[in-house]
């Protein structure tokens, strides 16, 4: 494998550090990677307008909220036929993050999670200005292997 996917040796150390730093609601990300989207329908449908964000970024409560309002999906109609929607929703709920506590209101924007803003504040202005990035939700602009679940800095 060409990509550095197998960098788990540092994992226990990073995880411990993360816990010490109070980065608790960030499961699966301790190694800078998350399980990639494997369902082909979810992958195809959710990657039409943006990268198919991995289910492990948000807890089931968040995904339920997102799937409940696909006709108004962050300012766009992303509605699906009921069968496809049910399939993808199930996939996301099955692979959702398991947080110990769910903040209120239930978050629906990954880019507004505390760990995310903490790690991206210095890029926020650049992301908006650079037309090649456009928005912080465009993971792949900077994280080349984001779609495959690898988010370490490239």
């Amino acid at each position: 494998m060409k990509e550095p996917f197998a960098m788990t040796s540092k994992a226990p150390f990073v995880a411990a550090l993360a816990l010490l730093a109070g980065l608790a609601p960030r499961p699966g990300l301790a190694e800078g990677s998350v399980r990639q989207v494997t369902d082909p329908v979810a992958k195809e449908e959710c990657s039409a307008c943006h990268m198919a964000y991995q289910p492990a970024f948000l807890p089931a409560e968040s995904w339920k909220k997102i799937f409940a309002d696909l006709s108004n999906h962050f300012g766009e109609d992303a509605s699906l036929d009921p069968k496809t929607e049910a399939r993808i929703r199930n996939y996301y709920l099955r692979h959702a993050a398991r947080w110990r506590s769910i903040p209120k209101p239930v978050p629906i924007r990954i880019t507004e999670l505390p760990w995310f803003t903490r790690e991206h504040t210095r890029f926020a202005a650049r992301a908006k200005q650079d037309p090649k990035i456009g928005s912080l939700s465009n993971c792949t602009a900077c994280h080349r292997y984001a779609e495959r679940g690898w988010f370490e800095n490239d």
């Binding site: 307008c49 300012g75 766009e76 109609d77 037309p131 456009g134 928005s135 465009n138």
Partner: peptide, 26 residues
Amino acid sequence: GKPDTPSCTSCHTRNVHQWGRTRAGK
């Protein structure tokens, strides 16, 4: 429609021979 997208060209641009871009940057 939704406030951010009053036209097809909001994402597809006015030049249909060129690449457009979604609001999420794709």
